[in-house]
Design a protein around this nucleic acid. Structure first.
Lengths: 191, 191
DNA sequence: TCCTTAAAGCCATCTTGATTGCTTTAAAGC
DNA sequence: GCTTTAAAGCAATCAAGATGGCTTTAAGGA
């Protein structure tokens, strides 16, 4: 993106908006011409910039999801994870967040180039765990956090089960209270 | 399906096969004419029977996934859950199983009619838990099984993380050992 | 074995999405 | 403010998928 300001940014945002709006409105397989029309943009611009509908959807999902649920620095692991997980829960209770998650998963074909955003999020999580470990707190692995906090939240949305308020807090609580008594489960895996 | 035998069944299987093969081969957005060609079937037949590509994909995914990972009756909850979860793990370590899961999730748009198969699976799970409870074993809720066994397995696949051998056993073990000490987590929810 | 009739096949048509060359606009640098 | 040049807009073309009427096939019942 050699020229990120002004019109380019405007078009990109308009197109991302159009994608989210159309998906949220149930136009699940709205094609590029329709998206372009909704965005008030010429279809050619989309073809030239994103190439395919899937690339566009992935880009929109990653861009918009990135804005939600940062990992805070509260001074305790519980606080950090809770803040993050509650952000995820909030996104997952929101229709647009649900739509974006589904779009992300749907367009992440196997054998594709890895999604940088996901790796970055994993690194952020690892950093929070490292800080906690340095403070002497008992810490889970990144995999455990993903398995027992993120996975349940995401799966609820993907399988259209309700995400009750307080789910994030319950999951984080369960993860951390299970820790001290059983610092490393039988089959150990490095985070 | 008023006439399920013979040619209809043959066409249906051929089309399902074609879908799985094409998806597995990376032809992620193969359209109906291509699927028809691969199946050796006329495109019109597919349009008439399934109506849209999404309906076809959903049908193929549900039909094929239904065949995997039944819940056995081993006489103990641990055995039942382990047998089931290992079936899921096996499917998730298989390329075709991964493909089908992704297709299932991708085509399950929100505000859609519920997928009977998923509800049936939930009922099966509940039945296994009921039997265990009748035997006097401590039992988790269905939600807990989904959260801490199924969700981690599925999310690994959807986010393209590896499913290590033994993951199912580890998850089931963790779920059940956490039970007796803490029969009901803070925020109780009826399964 | 012969009917009946879903369901599949075939073909013509229609619609829609994708692609490309060229022009116009408007950021960014001087 | 002028110049440069990505990036957007426009229009024509091309390719492909979707659809519907009609014919043919073959499963299932009498």
């Amino acid at each position: 993106m050699t020229r990120p300001g002004g019109r380019s940014a405007r078009v990109r945002d308009a197109v991302h908006d159009a994608v989210v709006e159309l998906l949220a409105a149930g136009e699940i397989d709205a094609a590029i011409p329709k998206i372009a029309e909704r965005a008030g943009v010429n279809p050619t611009s989309i073809y030239r910039r994103w190439g395919s509908r899937d690339h566009l959807l992935l880009d929109a999902a990653v861009t918009r999801l990135r804005a939600t649920s940062p990992i805070p620095d509260t001074g305790s692991l519980h606080g950090d994870l809770l803040g993050w997980a509650e952000g995820v829960e909030r996104a997952m209770r929101d229709r647009r967040g649900q739509i974006l998650l589904r779009a992300l998963v749907a367009t992440m074909a196997p054998d594709q180039e890895p999604v940088e955003y996901l790796k970055a999020r994993g690194d952020d999580l690892q950093a929070a765990l490292d800080k906690a470990a340095a403070r002497g707190e008992p810490v889970p692995t990144v995999d455990e956090v993903l398995d027992f906090v993120l996975a349940p939240l995401y799966l609820r949305v993907l399988f259209r089960r309700p995400v009750e308020p307080g789910t994030a807090a319950r999951l984080v609580g369960r993860l951390l209270t299970a820790l001290p008594a059983d610092p490393a489960p039988p089959a150990g895996r490095g985070g």
